[in-house]
């Protein structure tokens, strides 16, 4: 009996030792697979489609990283995480990168010891209500019951908003977006609150999306972006510049369709550096010269990914708004490839 206790203890200790942080880039290359943390299912951001394949802008970002690092956009292990489990999953090394509608905040960056690598969607928190309720402003929600995902910034903003406006509400804490939608439709809450993009995406999956409306108030800034563990700067650089490559590609007019001819035919020196026909940017990152070319060729540039998954021609139907290139009046602005 005593013996088995000791062996058990040793095994646990051994496992704990294995999780120690090290060069994630080398780990991923050695493993031949990228472990990417995503949502449990949010249409347009990351959700498995009918064939079980993960689709959405976060899923596409995971694939772009895998294409850049491993040369294979399908070498991704998608790990669904809830608002509550995501940070533990990343800190423990279960996932290499988290791309899950996660808001860049100071405490997450500094106190939780993560590094945010940019923003792939500028968002803000909104409220959805049934049209039949006849509510036209979030300030009319005094006394309402509100569904909110726990472990999120959403839950904190919600408390702040109602307190600042001196009105009351009753929170119904939920774990996943699917549960939130179900509770909201069942009438367990009067309003569902989360990032406005998430509301649009959730509403798109309803049987009668027209019966529900998003209130005009956006009560917070929610810059959503990918993050990695703090302290592994080489790996952080690779993920950050993969995101920048997708954004720059749109700005420079490089698409999945023309990336091949651009890499040989373009005379623009920045395009040449981005696609690896000139300079040694890939080598500096510890990758080969074609890293960005592969990411763009398989997933498309930022604009293509956006249009395919959440753009105005999709059921989610989001306008580019803040997420347009800086040249079009948006906030997307990649540092130069030089």
């Amino acid at each position: 009996m005593n013996k088995s206790v000791i062996f058990g203890a040793l095994t646990i200790a051994g496992l704990a030792a294995g999780a120690a942080a090290a060069g994630t880039l080398d780990d991923v290359k050695a493993r031949g697979k990228l472990n990417c943390g995503v949502t449990t299912g949010l249409a347009g951001f990351a959700a498995p489609d009918a064939t079980g394949e993960w689709k959405g802008i976060d899923a596409a970002f995971c694939r772009a990283v895998a294409a850049a690092v491993l040369g294979d956009a399908t070498a991704v292990e998608f790990v669904p995480t809830t608002g509550k489990t995501r940070f533990t999953a990343l800190a423990s090394g279960e996932i290499d990168v988290l791309a899950r509608n996660t808001t860049w905040t100071l405490s997450r960056d500094v106190d939780l010891k993560f590094d945010f690598l940019g923003v792939n969607y500028y968002d803000g928190q909104g409220f959805m209500v049934p049209k039949a309720l006849g509510v036209s402003s979030a300030k009319d929600l005094d006394g309402a019951t509100v569904c909110v995902q726990t472990g999120t910034t959403t839950e904190l903003n919600l408390a702040d908003f109602f307190r600042a406006n001196n009105i009351s509400y009753e929170p119904v804490p939920i774990e996943t977006n699917a549960e939130g939608a179900q509770q909201y439709l069942a009438g367990a809450c009067d309003s569902y609150t989360t990032d406005a993009s998430g509301l649009a995406s959730t509403r798109a999956t309803f049987e009668n999306p027209g019966d529900h409306t998003l209130l005009p108030e956006i009560i917070s800034k929610e810059p959503l972006g990918p993050l990695v563990r703090h302290g592994d700067n080489e790996w952080g650089d690779v993920v950050r510049w993969t995101l920048n490559a997708l954004i720059s590609a749109e700005e420079l007019g490089v698409t999945s369709a023309n990336v091949g001819e651009m890499s040989t035919g373009s005379t623009n020196p920045e395009i040449k550096r981005l696609l690896g026909t000139e300079g040694t940017l890939g080598e500096m990152l510890g990758l080969d010269a074609d890293w960005a070319k592969r990411a763009i060729a398989t997933q498309g540039n930022y604009g293509e990914i956006f249009a395919r998954n959440i753009g105005e021609d999709t059921p989610v139907g989001l306008a580019r708004g803040l997420n347009a290139q800086w040249t079009d009046g948006g906030l997307l602005y990649s540092p130069p490839f030089r």
Binding site: A16, A19, A20
Partner: peptide
């Protein structure tokens, strides 16, 4: 042996925490 293992687990935990700051 039990004390050593427990001590090992705890020191391991503390070392891992320190490594992740």
């Amino acid at each position: 042996l039990l004390a050593i293992s427990i001590g090992y687990i705890i020191s391991n935990l503390l070392a891992n925490l320190a490594e992740q700051d």
